[in-house]
Amino acid sequence: MINPQKSTAIVRSERPIALVGGGQVGPDDLKLVLIRVNLVVAADGGAVPLMDMGHMPDAVIGDFDSLGSSYRDQIPEERLFPIREQDSTDFDKALRSVEAPLVLGVGFLGGRLDHQLAVLNTLVRLRDRPCLLLGEREVVFLAPPRITLSLTPGDVVSLFPFERVTGKSRGLEWPIDNLVLESNGRVGTSNRALADVELSVDGPGLLVMVPRAALEQVMQAFLSEKTGRWPAHAE
């Protein structure tokens, strides 16, 4: 459902939605995501890869500095939602403007490192908006309070803290129990799954990276309503 009232969410859905950015989009990225959603939102220039594949976005959100007139003129006016401020990225503008049980994001990883860091920063700040980012090799998400994933033994499971967190794990080659993870201290990259992985953390701030092939398992874990959700970040 598209909501024209700018003071509330622009797009609401009871099912997962796709969010497409203007960054690196692999040949199968859109195919993997579009079959799993019923609404597609473009973050500014993310409308370009969508339209090039013959898909008209249900909504376009951003400052529109990356969307050329040749594309913009083809999009119905009622699907354009400009947010002109320059204090946030288009990913931030779009993610905070949608409400759904889960957002699947493509076109936000790869390319410029500063852009990727800004996206990951937003993923942590907008902690009440569950979002999976699809990369060339991995799926990235903010760890919810708890999650169980059916992974293949040997799968790489990387944990990177943007904020200080502690937690517990089962099914990892190197458990995180009794460890303090923080961005300027110990991190948990290049861990490995031994079997099903169970992870619980005491607060938001831990990014999880698992193989791209695990997209469906991660998605179903979030949609199971067994993960819990973080409250919105206090401004």
Rank of each mutant, 00 (worst) to 15 (best):
S183R: 07
G135A: 02
F160L: 14
T152E: 12
F162R: 14
G135E: 06
R212A: 05
L194D: 12
V157R: 01
W174C: 00
P204R: 13
A195D: 14
P153V: 06
S183L: 09
P153N: 11
L194C: 13
V157C: 05
V165H: 04
A143W: 13
P153M: 13
R146G: 09
V156T: 15
V140E: 05
P145D: 00
L151I: 04
S158W: 03
E198V: 02
L142R: 01
L149K: 00
A214C: 07
E138R: 09
A213I: 07
R146H: 09
A213C: 05
A214R: 12
R137L: 01
L134P: 03
G154N: 01
A213W: 05
V201R: 04
A193H: 07
S183N: 09
V140L: 13
G171N: 12
E136F: 02
A143N: 02
N184V: 14
V139S: 10
V208T: 06
N191H: 05
D196Q: 14
P145V: 00
A214N: 06
E138W: 04
R212N: 01
I147H: 01
D155P: 10
A195K: 15
V208N: 10
A214L: 10
V156A: 13
R192L: 14
R164E: 14
V157W: 06
P204F: 09
E138M: 00
N178F: 05
R186G: 11
R186T: 15
A214P: 10
P144I: 11
S158C: 01
F162K: 09
E138Q: 13
T189R: 09
S190H: 01
R186M: 14
T148F: 08
P145W: 00
L181M: 13
L181P: 03
S150K: 10
V139C: 12
G188R: 08
E138T: 15
E138S: 08
S150L: 09
I176F: 08
I176T: 00
P204S: 15
S190L: 13
P161Y: 08
K168F: 09
V157S: 04
R192H: 14
L207G: 04
P153F: 10
V180H: 03
L194S: 06
